[in-house]
């Protein structure tokens, strides 16, 4: 579920960066207030544990496929939401930096989708409510599974919103939702099973380990609900922003492809038609409806470009790529030559 940079627009990526940076600062402050020195090595080692655990697979009965631990829920059970969020953020950062798993610009989105929802929503609102203090049995298993499902559904929905808002992928919102949510329902069940299996073992082997260290859990649900509200408003802002930024980008690209002076005369008709179309559809959000509101070829917002430009673009692009490679090669050769002398 790690999003890649290539699918994110700077506006969406930047917004989510701001949101997660704020969360990191807030959580760091909270953890600091707890003033428990033991947390420093514990958080680091548990991060490494989650990293490893994500690579240990177990077979899912009767399906032939396999699954693994997500980490957010169990971390929250062990460390409380603030420290757990920081650990998830660090795990995702290292994955992005060292393993190219999710991009740097998308990091904000990924931390939010995979860290915020389990730590601040799924665990306190679902897991705690159902499991109470049960450390085994139906209560534990149903709580884990439900909490994992809710956490992942929200996360997956976050992915859909962020991708759609970025407008880089053409997947219509509805289709994307229908693709993502059921897949993550299944993944949620699997993750819930994994979490419950581990919690049940730890509860049997060393029950005291499951009491969050220094008990830094939110005293009431208020900060959680507040956090949810803020994130909802922010997400809403991103989505609405997208509508306008997408339009800007669109206009910009049209100008870019048709606006060259030498073609202006011949393409006037398209331009005029386009403007009319834009007027007509201006009240509609421009995502998801691209196909349906475009009645004919001529009114396409992205008209066929003169073959000359296209060929020059391709030729130029390839040559630039070659030149870039050549610069690198020469630099490298120079270095090795210098080393030899």
């Amino acid at each position: 579920m790690h999003m890649a940079d290539a699918l994110i627009s700077p506006a969406v990526g930047g917004t989510m960066w701001a949101v997660t940076s704020g969360l990191i600062f807030w959580c760091a402050k909270k953890v600091k207030q707890a003033a428990d020195d033991r947390l420093v090595p514990m958080m680091g080692v548990l991060g490494a544990f989650i990293f490893t655990a994500q690579m240990i697979n177990f077979s899912i009965p009767a399906t032939g496929s396999s699954g693994h631990l997500g980490g957010g829920l169990i971390l929250t059970a062990l460390l409380g939401p603030y420290a757990a969020f920081l650990v998830m953020a660090s795990v995702l950062t290292v994955q992005a930096l060292f393993f190219a798993d999710g991009g740097l610009l998308a990091l904000g989105c990924n931390i939010f989708n995979l860290g915020f929802f389990p730590a601040f929503v799924a665990y306190p609102l679902i897991y705690r409510m159902i499991a109470k203090d049960a450390k085994s049995g139906v209560r534990l298993w149903s709580a884990s599974i439900l909490a994992a499902i809710v956490g992942l559904q929200l996360g997956a929905f976050g992915v859909v919103l962020e991708t759609t808002a970025s407008g880089i992928s053409d997947l219509p919102f509805g289709t994307f939702v229908l693709l993502m949510q059921p897949i993550h329902l299944a993944i949620g069940v699997v993750e819930g099973l994994a979490t419950a299996a581990v919690v049940a073992f730890v509860a049997r082997a060393r029950p005291e380990a499951l009491v969050p260290i220094s008990g830094i859990a939110p005293k009431s649900l208020r900060p959680v609900v507040l956090g949810l509200l803020v994130s909802a408003v922010l997400l809403g802002a991103v989505v609405s922003w997208f509508a306008s930024s997408q339009l800007d980008g669109l206009e910009w690209s049209i100008k870019k492809t048709t606006g060259q002076e030498e073609f202006q005369g011949s393409d006037d008709g398209i331009h005029a038609g386009l403007a009319k179309l834009q007027e007509k559809t201006a009240f509609l959000p421009d995502y998801g409806f691209k196909k349906s509101v475009e009645p004919d070829e001529r009114a396409e917002p992205w008209p066929a470009v003169n073959a000359g430009t296209s060929v020059s673009g391709i030729v130029g692009g390839l040559i630039t790529l070659a030149v870039a490679g050549l610069i690198g090669y020469i630099l490298k050769a120079q270095r090795t030559a210098r080393k030899k002398t």
């Binding site: 548990l46 544990f49 655990a53 240990i56 994994a194 581990v198 073992f201 730890v202 082997a205 060393r206």
Partner: peptide
């Protein structure tokens, strides 16, 4: 891949050792 039961105790064990 491991069976769920084995998985639970193996991963749980690793968790305790990490702690």
């Amino acid at each position: 891949p491991l069976r769920l039961r084995t998985y639970g105790s193996l991963t749980g064990h690793l968790l305790l050792r990490s702690m």
